[in-house]
Amino acid sequence: MGRRADTTSAAAPPGRPAKVKAPPGLRALRRRRGARTVAFLSPWLIGFAVFFAYPLGATVYYSFTHYDLINPPQWVGLRNWRYVFEDYPPLGKALRNTLWLVAVMVPLRVLFGLGVGMIAVRLKRGASLFRTLCYLPFLAPPVAATIGFVFLLNPATGPVDQIMDTLHIPNVGWFNDPAWAKPALAMLAVWGIGDLMVIFIAALVDVPREQYEAASLDGAGPWQRFRYVTWPSITPVVLFALVTGVIQTMQYYTQAMVAGKVASGIIGAPGQSFEPGYPQGSTLTLPQLVYQEGFSSFDTGVACVLSLLLFGIAMLATVLLMRRRAGFMTAED
């Protein structure tokens, strides 16, 4: 046995190929390559450590402490977790609202984004103007857009209800009515589907034209062309829109908070105590609770529990969607 035999591990289990020690030159080369790889990855690694790993670790740690942001944290075990899951009524409201927004607002945004994208692709004249007009609302700052919607939908003075009055349609309270506040927020979200429209236009123009021609020759109608040509081609984009939509909805904060403040008339000025979720908790979401507990009540432990819960739900929803991707993919995918 030559040199190779000397490098063979004597403890190699039977039935497995013996590990072979690389020559010193090769090992040095591998080390250099490894170091270079790490060096190239270092911006991401540093970012991951600073902006993800450390905050995640700190959040887990603080969730087991009593920490008011002023005094050092004190270990309290599972107290914060028990409080949130056993004695914290806003959690149920926030979860129900978030679920509603995910189940209604996300699909509506995807449907409208796709619909507007399909119209934009098919338009022969005025397509640029149409695309611009549909995209513009997306550029409106969320706070300004929300204030605008609260004004438009004001049940006493808003033009929408005045038109409804003229048409003898029963008025609704919109942002002042717990039954209508979430639908009003969904309308606001659908109004700003410019981002999804652009993505869907890109996906739709990517569908090979010859497939449509072949389908037409085979006698396929509009629905069949959509079902068997368009849909298989754009499903990855639909999946992308759903996943990012779910994650964005989990973080839903600004619009709900602004709408609540403007519609209630209590803007949280010095001396005023504003309760998020107006009216009657119907627009309360988990991120609002995180802020409320963390930076109004200064109960960092509870805020961290809520953050971890939010993280867990977002991850679970993402994993489920990714696992169900088969429903969005064709056989050859």
């Binding site: 902006f51 993800f52 450390y54 905050p55 995640l56 700190a58 959040t59 603080y62 920490y67 942001l69 002023i70 005094n71 050092p72 944290p73 990855p236 999946l239 992308f240 996943v243 990012t244 994650i247 964005q248 989990m250 973080q251 991120p287 995180v290 963390g294 960092t300 805020a303 961290c304 953050s307 971890l308 939010l310 993280f311 977002a314 991850m315 993402t318 990714m322 991707r325």
Partner: peptide, 24 residues
């Protein structure tokens, strides 16, 4: 595409945890 989507998912959910605190 799946890796991209998964990366976006992780990055976005990480943003949910931006409540990290350090005592002053």
């Amino acid at each position: 595409f799946r890796r991209l989507t998964a990366s976006i998912a992780v990055a976005a959910t990480a943003a949910l945890l931006a409540t990290s605190c350090a005592g002053g």
